[in-house]
Simulated scan of single mutants.
Amino acid sequence: MQMEQLQKDMVAAMKARDKIRKETISTLVSAVKKLAIDEGCRDDIPEELVDRAILKELKTVKEQVDTCPDDRSELKAEYQTKYDIIKEYAPSMMSEEEVKAYLLKNFADVVATKNKGQIMKSVMAELKGKADGKVINQVVADLCQ
């Protein structure tokens, strides 16, 4: 996801007078800018950094949806709407089959050892932000059996 695209979408939401969408995208833009400042690349923000910030915000909003009491239905609906909007911008994660194929192609030598700890250590840094950690863990467990 490009930072410029987020900003264009925020302007479009402002013109459409879509308050919740504008606020949500504004939150994403702020999170990206904060992360960029923290990492010292404020002027030229790479896509990887934007994706990382979006995934972090997605996780935060998912926790809000999950922990919101059922008797606060209007608040829960607002959180769910925000989650759905952020989900549109989140990078797609690799499926279980894609992770398995990637591991067998790029990490065949490590997978051959059947040492789960060694495999996870080698693989996690490479797949961070591309696949869910639970999916990676499941695939590695299956390969080690």
Rank of each mutant, 00 (worst) to 15 (best):
Q2R: 12
E4R: 13
L6A: 05
K8Y: 03
D9C: 02
A13V: 02
A16V: 06
I20T: 12
S26E: 06
A31F: 00
V32P: 01
K33D: 02
I37W: 07
I37L: 08
D38N: 13
D44S: 15
I45L: 07
P46S: 12
E47V: 12
L49W: 04
V50E: 04
V50I: 05
D51K: 13
R52K: 14
A53F: 01
K56E: 05
K56W: 00
E57L: 06
L58N: 08
T60R: 14
T60W: 05
V65K: 12
T67N: 15
D70C: 00
D71F: 06
R72A: 09
R72W: 06
E74C: 00
Y79T: 04
Y79G: 06
Q80P: 00
D84T: 14
D84A: 15
Y89F: 11
A90W: 05
M93I: 03
M94G: 08
S95E: 03
E97D: 15
E98M: 03
V99K: 07
Y102D: 07
L104N: 14
N106Y: 07
V110Q: 09
A112M: 06
T113M: 08
K114L: 06
N115E: 09
K116I: 01
K116Q: 13
G117V: 07
K121L: 12
V123T: 14
M124Y: 07
E126H: 13
E126I: 09
L127I: 02
L127C: 06
G129P: 13
K130E: 12
D132V: 01
V135D: 06
Q138C: 03
Q138Y: 07
L143Q: 08
